[in-house]
Amino acid sequence: MSQSTMAIGRRERVSEHARTFVSRHASMMPTFAALLIFVLLLIGAQIHFGEFVTPRTLSALLLDNAYLVILAVGMTMVIVTGGIDLSVGSVMAFTGISCAALLDAGYPAVLVVPGIVVAGGLIGLLVGVLVQYFDVQPFIASLAGLFLGRGLAFVVSLKSIRVEDDAVLWLQTTRYRFGDWYITPTGILALVVALLGAFVMQYTRFGRTIYAVGGNEQSARLMGLAVARTKVLVYVISGLCGGLAGLVLTAYSGAGYPRNGIGTELDVIAAVVIGGTLLTGGTGYILGSVIGVLVYGTIKTVISYMGAEQSWTRIIVGLMLLSFIVVQRVIVVRAERRR
């Protein structure tokens, strides 16, 4: 490259910057695409309904999907390592119903809440150990976690249990208002978890090791990174997120129900993929997954606004997932051909 100090035209400098940005952040493009879709979705809904992009709807969007955001954080980490965690939905059901049952039995919330989060982490630990130390495929190991969580949820209770505990209900009923905007403690919790997750992914060795493992596990090991510990830990984190989501969902619905979260793992995976994370591992952003969840939630809201069957949500999410993976596929193929 030339060392000449020729004055570079302003426009050239802009394009130079653009090129640097693209070469540094090529892997973020799908996330930007998700953001664009989110914005377009909002604009479209606003035009169609006249009254959609209001502080109330947008505040409710976070409130209604707080548990999904929390699950998506753990799921993103797992998927970036090249794994998958099918157990999150049933872990959430198990911890949620346990939370309600324990509170119902008179245990104090200060003990119950950490207890159920740790319980979620333990199921995650089981999955992680199976994956790392017994070479079980993540799909199968987390399938065991799925069965375990779901079964345990029914062992705890076959029926739904109402929650009367003030501390837990406070999470949901408290509304911090800023004009017409509001946020609940569950929403704050979800945002904190997402920001914390994003920070860990970007700025800690553990986070970079997650990417490294997804890029090439063998190379990561040769680089002296703690591959084994990282792989176990992402499942533990996903389990902890499952526990936290159980708490949030219980607070949200005011009850624990053992059939909660059937198929939620798929919603989460879909949201994560829509948010720009590659299922092959190595690429993905937690904030992208948050956007993915918001896209998912917006579609749900739009459909309920239209008064249409909720079954449309999954059809549309399915189609959107399809278009995303096709686009991702095209990008990958083009990148390969350029080599």
């Binding site: 990417y211 997804g214 890029g215 063998q218 190379s219």
Partner: peptide, 8 residues
Amino acid sequence: IDLLPNLS
């Protein structure tokens, strides 16, 4: 080459 293509 045993490096990581997805990292900087």
